[in-house]
């Protein structure tokens, strides 16, 4: 298959614009490196491209598979950085700015108005084939055409998007220096509801059953810490999970310790988590981590009327207090 076959006209235009803007940024010395995506080594995948070499710029791509939240690389980057940024990623960047982890003036945000990223696990389930057995995936607006065994099948795009993309509140970066295309509208109410299905089904069951559900899920956890490694909000130099004095929990992959690790991680990123979905996507044993993260996101919104990564001037949620706080301990 021609690797560019799955690109729509819009993607192509954005890709061209990205390459010329990125090249100019490097040539004019406005940035020291570019963080973007290039084609991955496997079908329908992309991989981060981090480069200061303008000869690499022609490898930059925009397509429905640019899944990684590249802001995770910012805290380690040196100098000024131009970064390809989807709406959700821009919220992570803003959150990092709020936390003083990166300086706004060191980043050139190259915004991608994003109509959602294709979840290959959903595609695989829809057609009953593995990724590498699928011949083609083409997005044409709200339809996606999947080719299997020479036959083209059409599905509504919303059926193959990641859940967090389906309910996306900010598809076009708000904090942005260069915008590569026309803004994309936020998700419809109907799609927002659909994106919550998995989470709501968990809310609807009795607490004992829900406990049982999570116990089972976390029995699979291997403690590879991919959820932590891909998370832009997990920027601690030393994670509590590895502390030995005191040892908060054992590093062995045992259900109860695994669950405890994730619960503490969720509390630690409360007010920073932007619901980018990377934790769930990267989990090699398919634990629905976003359901936990999203629930915490909603608790934060309900209790503090706060959404992470929306306003770079706002004080970070858990580093600020107000005298009108109803809790006594804070006064």
């Amino acid at each position: 298959m021609d690797p560019t076959e799955y690109l729509t006209m819009k993607d192509r235009e954005m890709e061209q614009k990205l390459r010329s803007e990125a090249k100019a940024l490097l040539e004019q010395g406005k940035v020291d490196c570019i963080i973007g995506f290039e084609d991955g080594s496997l079908k329908f995948t992309t991989t981060p491209l981090i480069t200061g070499d303008k000869d690499d710029i022609s490898r930059l791509v925009i397509n429905p598979f640019i899944v990684n939240n590249l802001s995770v690389y910012l805290t380690e980057s040196k100098g000024r950085v131009g970064i390809v940024t989807k709406g959700c990623d821009s919220r992570s960047i803003v959150s990092l700015i709020q936390d003083n982890k990166v300086a706004r003036e060191d980043i050139v945000i190259i915004g991608v108005p994003c109509p959602g990223i294709i979840d290959l696990r959903k595609v695989e389930q829809l057609v009953g084939k593995d990724r590498d057995e699928i011949e083609g995936i083409t997005r044409e607006g709200d339809r996606v055409i999947i080719t299997v065994d020479g036959n083209k099948k059409e599905f509504p795009t919303r059926e193959v998007l990641f859940d967090n993309c389906l309910g996306c509140e900010l598809p076009t970066p708000q904090e942005c220096d260069i915008l590569l295309g026309e803004p994309v509208l936020p998700a419809s109410e109907e799609d927002k509801v659909a994106s919550q299905e998995k989470i709501n089904s968990l809310k609807d069951i009795a607490p004992e059953q829900r406990w049982e559900f999570w116990r089972n899920e976390f029995d699979r956890c291997l403690r590879c810490y991919a959820c932590r490694s891909v998370c832009p909000a997990c920027f601690c130099q030393r994670c509590f999970a590895e502390e030995t004095e005191p040892q908060w929990l054992l590093p062995i992959p045992r259900g109860q310790d695994n669950l405890m690790f994730q619960v503490i991680r969720n509390i630690h990123v409360a007010g920073r988590c932007t619901d980018c979905g990377e934790c769930e996507r990267s989990c090699p044993v398919n634990i629905p981590l976003r359901s936990l993260a999203r629930e915490m996101y909603e608790i934060v919104e309900e209790l503090f009327h706060y959404k992470a990564g929306m306003d770079k001037e706002a004080p970070p949620l858990l580093a600020a207090y107000e005298a009108i706080d109803p809790e006594d301990f804070i006064r």
Partner: peptide
Amino acid sequence: TKCISCGICTFLCPTCYCFD
């Protein structure tokens, strides 16, 4: 540069044997 230092490639490697 792009590696994020998670444990996937080693834990899921059939020949990696390191343990703690």
